[in-house]
């Protein structure tokens, strides 16, 4: 059953747990795709039969991009939370860019140059998560307690902490991680690097993938609609100015 693989002149074998993890990885990806697909199907089934003001103009692109990048709406509502959320979302972008090195071969220069920013972003995101938790749970004592958001924050804390620990303690062979990830991408499974931090980091990421919040996909659309709607509000009863 074990598969013999020659990897940099080192003989490694695919063990049952390697196959299980590979299977779980593909399953998680399937769950993610099916959930997203199901969500989009429900959107497409929308009645649109309600009498509604038709779209007059599309949202202005520059304002839309600016709003998305700055999370402007949140800033207007709660500046304190905004600091944490903006830092978190911005650092996620750099962390994502840093992780591209595991799926791309050869690594593009841009991704290579962003590596140190990615490491820094890891610390920032951990800080942001704790900051948000502190604000919401301890300081602001939010009236609306939402177990799902707490679950997301807990998951992200685990992922970020183990990521940072791997970096600090150099416990994992990054080349093995790359082979493992590339193996998944190319459907040629490779053995899993056996490191407790990596395992926790990776499995928690798979869990997050299954429960990824829908607002990541839907909010950019509603923000575009809100910009258009607010602009058109002036035109409902007023001449264009």
């Amino acid at each position: 059953m074990d598969k013999f693989i020659l990897d940099n002149n080192v003989c490694t074998y695919m063990k049952p747990h390697d196959y299980i993890i590979c299977l779980v990885s593909y399953l998680s990806l399937c769950v993610f795709i099916v959930r997203t697909f199901s969500m989009c199907m429900i959107w497409l089934r929308g009645g649109s039969r309600s009498p509604e003001l038709p779209l007059i103009t599309p949202a202005p692109l520059a304002r839309y991009v600016a709003e998305l990048l700055t999370l402007l709406r949140l800033l207007k509502v709660n500046g304190w939370i905004w600091v944490g959320e903006w830092l978190f979302h911005a650092s996620l972008l750099f962390i994502f860019m840093r992780h591209l090195r595991y799926v791309l071969a050869p690594i593009p220069e841009t991704v290579f140059n962003l590596q140190s920013f990615g490491i820094f972003a890891g610390y920032v995101s951990l800080f942001a998560i704790f900051y948000i938790l502190l604000l919401k749970v301890v300081i602001m004592k939010d009236a609306y307690k939402n177990p799902y958001n707490l679950f997301l924050l807990a998951t992200l804390t685990i992922i970020t902490t183990t990521g940072i620990l791997m970096r600090l303690r150099h416990t994992v062979d990054t080349m093995r991680v790359k082979y493992f990830v590339l193996g998944l991408v190319t459907f040629e499974p490779q053995p899993l690097p056996l490191d407790p931090f990596f395992l926790t980091h990776y499995i928690t990421s798979l869990i997050l993938l299954c429960f990824i919040p829908s607002h990541i996909f839907a909010a950019p659309l509603t923000i575009a609609d809100a910009i258009r709607r607010e602009r058109d509000l002036r035109r409902l009863l007023h001449e264009e100015r």
């Binding site: 969500m39 959107w43 497409l44 089934r45 309600s50 709660n78 909010a219």
Partner: peptide, 21 residues
Amino acid sequence: FSNALSAGQLIELDACARCGE
């Protein structure tokens, strides 16, 4: 349940980040 809602409104349901603000 989606009968009365437009596509845009169904997207709005998924867009809620439950921030509670």
